[in-house]
Each structure stands twice: as structure tokens, then as C-alpha cells.
């Protein structure tokens, strides 16, 4: 402190001296900056996660219904040998893949128009138009689809006005994707998932497209490529990492969601609903914990694949 006092102006208060002293001790400053957030996330968050993981190695005693705190793989054995659980996993993964694909197809034209054709003002407006649904209430947006998809709701009304009621009925009579009404079918669940996660796909694609240099596109044209060729052979390959980055969100969010399929869709459970039911109604925390390992493992595999496709450079 004596050497620092010589370099700095006269200091009166304790705080002033402390703050100047900290500036000259970057290690101490770093420690003080990092300690609170690390304590919070490390103790509260990571602690909780590890506690959950640890509990998947416990098991529930069949007679008392109490959790036995001894290391066992019985919970995993029960979990993996139950074919109903594999059905749930398969159903969820297929839904997540379908939702991801649909999001990519809908998001790409929006992002492409935004980056390459929209003027400054329109681009800002579109950006805000994507941000608003992204940040605004998830529940309210799900609720709006309950209004739209209801039996007496908007879609049915429009279908009848256009004399297309028969087409809607034909769609609903299809196996698997059909159901008594749109709001109690997988089609409904699918549409709502796509709607809710779409902004998460648009933004990374926009970011990837913005990184395509104009000069590259001009060079492609100068070298004789037609616009269509430039799009397919230059722009699209460079945009793929953005699509993959977006798909990380859409895939992960669909895997873990338990609210949407509970509100709109059939009664057969998705992964998130199974976890929720195990910990809530059944009170089987070890089994619920084993269930939560599934999306974590699936996302691990997915992230490893995405990394190979260069998705992290586009985030």
C-alpha cells in the first residue's frame, strides 16, 4: 500500500483507498469480482444439479415408498427395461426433429429476406418483430393457440367459410397425427411447438447470413453464376451453421418442454411430462432424475454433432 500511495493522489476515505488498492492488485480484484457469481451458480445451481444426478443412483423402496439412500443402478435398470419409457423417448425425439425441420423451413425465408433485401428501417422493424415473440410470454402465446385450434375456434371457422371443412376432417381422421380436434392432436402440439420456438431459429440464421460477405456474392456473380446458383452454392452452404445453431435451441427446448403437450395435444406423455409426473404425482425423485439424464445425454450427442458442422461459430 505504501508504494501505491506515492503514485496516487491524496486519498481520504477508506473506500477510496480500498478501490485504488484493488486496481493495483488485479488478482485480488478478479477474485472479488468472480466470487459472488461463482458462489451463487456453483453452490446453488451446480450443487442442485449434482444432487439431482446423485439421486438417480438411489432407488425407491417398493414397500415403504421411501427413497433408500444407497448406491444402486436399480433405478436405471427399471427405467431402461420399461418399453413404455422408450416409447416416450422416441415420440419426443421424433417431435423435436420434426419441429426443428419445420422451424428451419419457415425461418430461412424470413432471415434471408431480412438480411439481403430489407432496407434499414424494415430490417429493424423485422428484428423487433422477431424479438417481441421471443421474449414475450410463453404461456400467453400457448394460450392463443388454444383459442385458434379449439373445435369452435378460428381455424374451423375459416375452413368452413372456405368450404374446406371436409379437408380438416380428413386430416383429423388420419392415424397418429389426427384426433378429435386440432387442439387434442399431435398436429396441434406440433404447430404450437413450431410457433413458440421459431424465433430461436430465425436469429442465428440471420446472424449467419449477415456474415456472408457481399464481395463473395459479387465474385460468384462475376464468375458467371446465375443468382440461383449463387444462392445454392455460395449462400446456402455458408448459412448452414446458423441453421444448425438454431436447431440446438429448437431441439433442446422441445425435448424438455412439458407444458405445451399438456395443454394442446393427446394424453400420451412426452419426456418432460414423464419427468414432471414422476417427481410430482408419483413422488419418485430417483426415477425422475434418471429421466432427466435422457435429454442431457441426447443434447450432448446433438451438440457434438453440431460442433462438427461449425454451429458454434454462428452463435
Amino acid at each position: 500500500m505504501t508504494s501505491s500511495a506515492a503514485m496516487l493522489p491524496r486519498e481520504s476515505g477508506f473506500l477510496q483507498r480500498l478501490s485504488s488498492g484493488l486496481y493495483l492488485r488485479p488478482r485480488l480484484l478478479l477474485f472479488l469480482l468472480l466470487a459472488p457469481p461463482l458462489l451463487w451458480l456453483g453452490v446453488i445451481y451446480l450443487g442442485s444439479l449434482f444432487a439431482l444426478l446423485a439421486q438417480s443412483f438411489f432407488a425407491v423402496d417398493e414397500f415403504s415408498g421411501m427413497v433408500v439412500k444407497e448406491f444402486t443402478l436399480a433405478t436405471y435398470r427399471d427405467f431402461l427395461t420399461n418399453p413404455a419409457n422408450w416409447d416416450i423417448i422416441l415420440r419426443t425425439v421424433v417431435m423435436a426433429a420434426a419441429v426443428t425441420l419445420a422451424c428451419a423451413v419457415i425461418a430461412f425465408p424470413i432471415a434471408y429476406y431480412m438480411v439481403r433485401f430489407a432496407g434499414m428501417r424494415l430490417k429493424a422493424a423485422m428484428y423487433l418483430g422477431v424479438m417481441l415473440p421471443l421474449w414475450s410470454s410463453y404461456l400467453v402465446r400457448v394460450y392463443s393457440w388454444k383459442l385458434i385450434l379449439a373445435k369452435e375456434g378460428i381455424i374451423s371457422w375459416f375452413a368452413n367459410q372456405l368450404h374446406l371443412g371436409w379437408a380438416l376432417d380428413a386430416w383429423l381422421s388420419l392415424p397418429v397425427i389426427g384426433g378429435p380436434s386440432l387442439s387434442t392432436s399431435y398436429t396441434g402440439t406440433f404447430v404450437v411447438f413450431v410457433y413458440i420456438w421459431l424465433p430461436f431459429m430465425i436469429l442465428p440464421v440471420v446472424a449467419a447470413l449477415e456474415r456472408v460477405p457481399n464481395s463473395v456474392i459479387e465474385a460468384s456473380g462475376d464468375l458467371g453464376a446465375r443468382p440461383r446458383q449463387t444462392f445454392r452454392q455460395v449462400i446456402l452452404p455458408l448459412a448452414i451453421p446458423g441453421v444448425v445453431a438454431g436447431s440446438i435451441f429448437t431441439f433442446s427446448l422441445t425435448l424438455g418442454d412439458y407444458i405445451i403437450p399438456g395443454i394442446i395435444g393427446q394424453s400420451t406423455p412426452f419426456l418432460g411430462q414423464a419427468v414432471f409426473a414422476q417427481q410430482g404425482i408419483a413422488g419418485n425423485i430417483p426415477l425422475a432424475a434418471a429421466f432427466t439424464v435422457v435429454p442431457v445425454v441426447l443434447m450432448g450427442i446433438y451438440l457434438a454433432l453440431a460442433k462438427r458442422l461449425g454451429a458454434f461459430d454462428a452463435l
Binding site: L41, Y45, S48, L49, L52, S252, I285, T292, V296
Partner: peptide
């Protein structure tokens, strides 16, 4: 540290939720 900070929204919310719930119970 960057990863640790992003983790609570990168992992599905249900995992964060159930982990906190079990920690609160313990």
C-alpha cells in the same frame, strides 16, 4: 465460467427446476 452462466437457460427448464426442487427438499 461462461458455460456455467449460460447453463441455466441452455439446459431444458425442467432440469433446472427439478434440480432446485430436490435441493430445496434435501
Amino acid at each position: 465460467i461462461s458455460l456455467l452462466i449460460v447453463l441455466p437457460i441452455a439446459l431444458p427448464g425442467i432440469i433446472t427446476g427439478i434440480a432446485l426442487r430436490s435441493a430445496i427438499a434435501i
